[in-house]
Amino acid sequence: MSLSVTLTINGDRKDVVLEDPRVTLLDLLRERLHLTGTKKGCDRGQCGACTVLVDGRRINACLALAASLDGAEVMTIEGLAVGGRLATVQSAFIEHDGFQCGFCTPGQIMSAVGLILEGDAGDDPDRVREGMSGNLCRCGAHAGIIEAVLDAQKRVAGEEGKAA
């Protein structure tokens, strides 16, 4: 079985030949495609710094085998801004000081995008906190992060209302 995979990454189709089957999605993004926005924190599914969307769902890229994801659509932090215009979640993180050093931020933002897509949390801060518990912030910016997610969610809902 050939270990070439085709992935659609931030809308671009990529054919990648894997040197061996051990390559995780995280290492493929960072080392092969040089998309280094997705961070390697713990590399064990505990910190959430590597969170990306695969087929619209947030997962830990460090615990996904690239070979197994042949055909998948992946969205990383690099795919959020369109034409230099920040996505709503990105703007909200800036406005609410949802970070300090910034290392966990791409994972936090992709996790927030996933949470908003899931649509389970509503405007309940407890549900948002619970839904973001897979993303650690060593600087302790969680208070701003939760405010940013709640605000972004409200704005996204408003934009969808306008579009509809």
Binding site: G45, R58, N60, L115, G134, N135
Partner: peptide
């Protein structure tokens, strides 16, 4: 159990 990311996988 786990986190939202892990439950998705």
């Amino acid at each position: 159990g786990a986190s939202a990311q892990l439950r998705n996988a």
